[in-house]
């Protein structure tokens, strides 16, 4: 799937054996976005010409030349990935520390907000602390992990307490929708002024 990092767009994928990898989202052959590609076994292939890449980013196969072993120089840039408690973390450059753990919390869903973190904080009536925003919405406690996507967009991961039942999880999802609407309304009214 496609995702954004401060180092540019990436194709995030999981191999058959379950290992996640993050590639620069561009096939070096003809520039096609690799996030449109397909996963077979431990490789990601480009949808355009089927060039396939191993998790380390090196090109393994060029279908137009089945007999050819691709030169080692052909490959895509990768970024370190860590799967921690159901949340995928990407590091730009070599990571210096492990990603934070949120013990007792489970991820519910991820949502794109067409507003920056400031608008979300204003909508929530509280400040984010270390990327984590704790607030109440629709009489529902919400814990949000915020990842800025440039200045005007935020990827918002909704977390709930482990073991939360379906009814409360649905309520949390709806509360997050309300918060997003508020944040985007704040942004719109600011633009209108």
């Amino acid at each position: 799937m496609p995702a954004q990092t401060p180092a540019g767009p990436i194709a995030l994928w999981r191999s058959r054996s379950g290992r996640a990898a993050a590639f620069a989202d561009r096939c070096p052959h003809r520039g096609m976005r690799l996030s449109h590609g397909f996963v077979r076994g431990e490789t990601l292939s480009c949808i355009y010409h089927g060039w396939s890449y191993a998790q380390a980013g090196n090109c393994l196969r060029i279908p137009a030349h089945p007999g050819l072993t691709p030169p080692e120089t052909i490959g895509v840039a990768t970024q370190p990935v860590e799967d921690s408690g159901g949340i995928i973390w990407i590091s730009v450059g070599e990571p210096t520390a492990r990603p934070p753990r949120f013990d007792g919390l489970a991820p519910l869903r991820s949502m794109m907000v067409e507003a920056g973190i400031a608008a979300l904080e204003a909508a929530a009536g509280t400040k984010a602390d270390g990327g984590l925003l704790d607030c109440a919405q629709n009489a529902q406690a919400l814990r949000l992990l915020l990842s800025p996507q440039g200045k005007a967009r935020t990827l918002m991961h909704v977390l709930v307490d482990e073991g939360t039942g379906p009814a409360k999880r649905i309520a949390a999802s709806r509360a997050a929708e309300t918060l997003r609407r508020k944040a985007e309304d704040i942004l719109r009214s600011e633009v209108a002024q």
């Binding site: 561009r26 052959h29 520039g31 096609m32 060029i62 137009a64 030349h65």
Partner: peptide, 20 residues
């Protein structure tokens, strides 16, 4: 609509052709 960059790169280092 999903090739990057949108313009055709004429710089030989930008994309990797093969015999095909």
């Amino acid at each position: 609509e999903n090739q990057i960059p949108r313009l055709l790169p004429l710089d030989p280092g930008m994309e990797i052709p093969t015999r095909a």
